[in-house]
Design a protein around this nucleic acid. Structure first.
Length: 109
DNA sequence: GGATTGACATCCC
DNA sequence: CGGGATGCCAATC
C-alpha cells in the first residue's frame, strides 16, 4: 500500500465519534487536495478489510454518497450525528475540523 | 496503453 | 437551492 493510502486511512481513523468529514477534506489532509475520488475508492476497497469508521466520510454536499444510504445513516445516527431525509447531514454542525478541536478547547477555557 | 469508470468537488446558470 | 458541465486521478477493462 502506498503512503497516500496509509495517510488516508490514518486520517479517517482520526475522525472523532459524532463528527463527519468530507472526501475532499480527507484527501487534503492526506496530501492530495484533488484526490477525493481516490479517497472514495480506498473506502470502497479497504473498508471491509480494515475496521475503519468509513461511515463518518460523506461528500461535500453533506450527503451520504453510498447507495443505499440506510446502513451508513443508521451508524451515524447511532453515534449522535443527525441524519435527516435519509441521507442529509448538517455539515455546519457535524463536520470535523481537525485543528478546531484545539480551537474549541481554547474557546471554552 | 488508450478508454472507461467512479462512495468527489467546484463553478456556472 | 437544483441541475448540468468540467476538472481530477487512480484502478480497471
Amino acid at each position: 500500500m502506498d503512503s497516500f493510502t496509509k495517510d488516508v486511512i490514518d486520517n479517517i481513523k482520526a475522525i472523532p465519534e459524532g463528527k463527519v468529514a468530507t472526501y475532499g477534506q480527507i484527501a487534503k489532509l492526506a496530501g492530495k487536495p484533488r484526490g477525493a475520488r481516490q479517497v472514495a475508492r480506498i473506502l470502497h476497497t479497504m473498508s471491509e478489510k480494515h475496521d475503519l469508521p468509513w461511515h463518518r466520510v460523506i461528500n461535500s454536499q453533506g450527503k451520504i454518497s453510498l447507495q443505499p444510504p440506510e446502513r451508513q445513516a443508521a451508524r451515524l445516527i447511532a453515534e449522535g450525528v443527525e441524519v435527516t431525509n435519509g441521507s442529509r447531514v448538517q455539515l455546519k454542525q457535524f463536520q470535523w475540523e481537525k485543528d478546531d478541536d484545539l480551537y474549541d478547547l481554547w474557546m471554552k477555557g
